[in-house]
Design a protein around this nucleic acid. Structure first.
Length: 458
DNA sequence: TTTTGAGTTGTTCGA
DNA sequence: GTCGAACAACTCAAA
């Protein structure tokens, strides 16, 4: 009996999944079954950090349960595994959501070729974005380089309504490899899976959307949606979020908060679009704002980097963020900017090292989002922060963690320092002995960074 | 083709 | 404490 394959990649859900709908329809029209396939790709498995792998396996377990326990997991190279499965079950079609990041595109091209030799086709339907990367162009036909006009075009273009969740999918039974044990390095990972994503989102709509515009900047409050990992793994599609936002606004949610959230989704799509057009942005600065080798390598750079990565810089907000990352595989967005600015502009380490550290620990680690946000902070992206914008960790702490609660939560050495004084422990009459001294003087390093940029511009 | 308006997220300084 | 200006031109995108 001819069977159709849905190959899940970063769309680990059954709702609002157009590729799944296409697979189910194709199977039904021939009275056939559907193979739900996930390939544990050795290339990705070895590159992803322990936290992301642990999250992924948890999400796959949830997906398997949703697929009546019939999810077929195979470990290996998709170039071999996917055509192999297609051949085994006599499938003529392998349905997917299109990939847009550099590795995924290369992989899919190769799989498509291999499938052709097996007499089958790779059928892409939809993508992980409301508007597929590469779709929007300026009036001159060029890709957008600046966020605001991109967002304008993105809003005007619009998106489809969410796809319906297929009922009673005739899942095929097929041998499945066991999921490997993936122990996270973080102590507390967010709950994975489509149902967890749905619950988190609805809690946010109810409790977090009103006031989101200001609360989102407060790491001491639970002011963000915390949807990043769910979006990263496609446990929910942004189109669903956009549809729900529209409904929320019609139901009385504040228009500016809704617009702010929509904007954050637009940033996500902008970064995906940029990487689609410039796959080299994964590893290289889009703009050389300083000569590459003026950002430290060498022993001094290594020591500074290790201090930063361990959360022992002596700047409480920076250390709190870095320790939150290690403990949970996640860091608040505002704090990501602060720690990134500190690494690049205070410690003068190239953004690529920081980006790699983030990718090693984040459960939501995504090449387009991670690399391009780092480039934004470093000033090397093509719609980047102006070079003179250097975050002051103390000012940022006082502004966005006004009572110091966030710092105290993640830096136990400072647990007994009350209020906002926690952002400047060196000014205390008796600073905690087990908390490190400031690794550098921020005012001085800011000056050094500005001078470097200034020199490079000339 | 030329012109025009605009550009995520900040900090510091001086009034 | 609060406020506005300076930081620095440059590039983009649309009219």
């Amino acid at each position: 009996m001819p069977t159709t394959v849905i190959w899940f990649r970063r769309d680990l859900r059954l709702a609002d999944n157009p590729a799944l709908v296409a697979a189910v329809e194709s199977a039904r029209s021939g009275g056939a079954e559907v193979v739900g396939l996930y390939v544990l790709d050795d290339a990705l498995w070895s590159a992803a950090g322990a936290n992301r792998l642990a999250y992924l396996t948890a999400s796959l377990r949830a997906l398997d349960a949703a697929c009546d326990g019939r999810l077929v997991v195979r470990r290996g190279d998709p170039r071999d595994v996917v055509p192999g499965v297609a051949r085994t079950v006599g499938a003529a079609e392998v349905h997917v959501a299109a990939s847009h990041e550099p590795y995924g595109r290369r992989r899919d091209d190769a799989v498509e070729d291999a499938l052709g030799e097996a007499g089958a086709r790779l059928v892409p339907t939809g993508s992980a974005y409301a508007v597929s990367p590469g779709r929007l162009r300026t009036g001159a036909g060029t890709p957008y380089q600046v966020f605001t006009p991109f967002r304008g075009a993105w809003l005007e273009h619009g998106w489809r309504a969410p796809a319906p969740r297929p009922r009673e999918i005739p899942w095929a039974s097929l041998r499945s490899d066991d999921l490997p044990d993936a122990a996270p390095t973080a102590e507390h990972l967010p709950r994975a899976g489509e149902e967890a994503a749905r619950r988190r989102w609805h809690t946010f709509l109810r409790d977090g959307l009103a006031g989101y515009g200001t609360a989102r900047d407060r790491p001491d409050l639970a002011g963000t949606s915390a949807m990043s990992a769910h979006l990263r793994w496609g446990e929910v599609h942004p189109r669903t979020l956009l549809a729900d936002l529209g409904e929320a606004q019609a139901g009385g949610a504040p228009a500016d908060d809704v617009a702010t959230f929509r904007s954050e989704l637009a940033w996500r799509e902008f970064h995906a679009d940029v990487l689609h057009h410039r796959p080299d942005a994964r590893a290289r600065s889009l703009r050389a704002v300083v000569p590459d080798d003026s950002w430290a390598g060498g022993a001094a750079g290594d020591a500074a980097f290790e201090t930063w990565a361990a959360g022992r810089t002596g700047y409480p907000l920076v250390d709190a963020g870095m320790r939150q990352l290690l403990a949970t595989g996640w860091m608040h967005n505002r704090v990501r900017m602060v720690v990134a600015s500190f690494l690049v502009k205070d410690l003068h380490v190239r953004w690529q090292r920081g980006a790699a550290h983030f990718m090693a620990h984040l459960v939501d680690g995504d090449v387009s989002q991670n690399q391009l946000n780092w480039q934004w902070v470093a000033g090397t992206g093509h719609d980047a922060a102006p070079y003179f914008r250097v975050f002051n960790p103390v000012t940022q702490g006082r502004k966005f963690d006004p009572d110091g609660d966030y710092v105290r939560r993640w830096v136990p050495e400072l647990r007994d320092v009350p209020g906002r004084a926690v952002h400047e422990p060196w000014k205390l009459p008796s600073p905690p002995e087990d908390y490190p001294d400031q690794v550098v003087d921020h005012a001085h390093e800011r000056r050094v960074a500005l001078d470097d940029f200034e020199r490079a511009r000339r």
